[in-house]
Design a binder for these strands. Sequence first.
DNA 1: ATCTTAATGCAACTGAGTCGCAAAAGTAAG
DNA 2: CTTACTTTTGCGACTCAGTTGCATTAAGAT
Lengths: 128, 128
Amino acid sequence: MGVIRKTKSVSALLDAFSQQEIALSTLELVERFKDQMNRSTVYRILERLENEGVLHSFSGQDGITWYALCNDKDCSNTPKFDTHPHFQCRDCGKTECLPISVPIPEVSEHNVESVSLLMVGQCSDCAS
Amino acid sequence: MGVIRKTKSVSALLDAFSQQEIALSTLELVERFKDQMNRSTVYRILERLENEGVLHSFSGQDGITWYALCNDKDCSNTPKFDTHPHFQCRDCGKTECLPISVPIPEVSEHNVESVSLLMVGQCSDCAS
DNA sequence: ATCTTAATGCAACTGAGTCGCAAAAGTAAG
DNA sequence: CTTACTTTTGCGACTCAGTTGCATTAAGAT
């Protein structure tokens, strides 16, 4: 039980991620695949892939959920201190993982287990 | 025009904030004041107080919105690099502003304008 | 080829937050 | 204190992301 099956829908979604390095929002994916699969299927597959450690999710500016591929270097998927920050452009909305690590200070009386850090600004494309 | 009026509802909400140092979620406030004012009134007053620089808002773990009083020391309200982080307890949900500043590194090719940082863990009450 | 179990489609639902509009309450001027 | 003007509020309908139950479909192991 619990085996993840390689269905057409799963492959289609994985393809979308492997073709670009930026993150994709649930809304974008639901829209892009609305002719190929149901809305709930998109949500369910994303959830499954995250549980498998293939994707990781985070919240963007407006509270909507984004997903991005995990890579060994800067994404452990188990949300810990090594979680990387994300950057979202305030103009075009493009969102990406930042391959940097921000040192989080210890906070007295607080047992910090995970950190989520979202940076918002203008990307280089929109700045020019 | 544009003057903010000190209505009973506004005073009631401000009282709630001045009585404790932790942040309050919209849900908590809507529930607490459901007999005294309408749901939309709560949302509208919070929005107004944030525009006035009295409160600031941020997103908690589940995407719901939290508000907390601004104090001169660690809250500029204009979201900039000096925005402070917030801590939310994974067990009891208690959420607070952390009076520390986390240095955010420069990111090449990215014009970072604001940062939001949420730490999740166990608070001292729940740890004991 | 068959059978078991996971995956999907569909439609209804949830829950936070928003909006338009008429009624009510602040505030300033007379 | 009244009037006149403007902001606030209540209400109900609405939006929108995401979830759920259930019957049907399709992987993949035997």
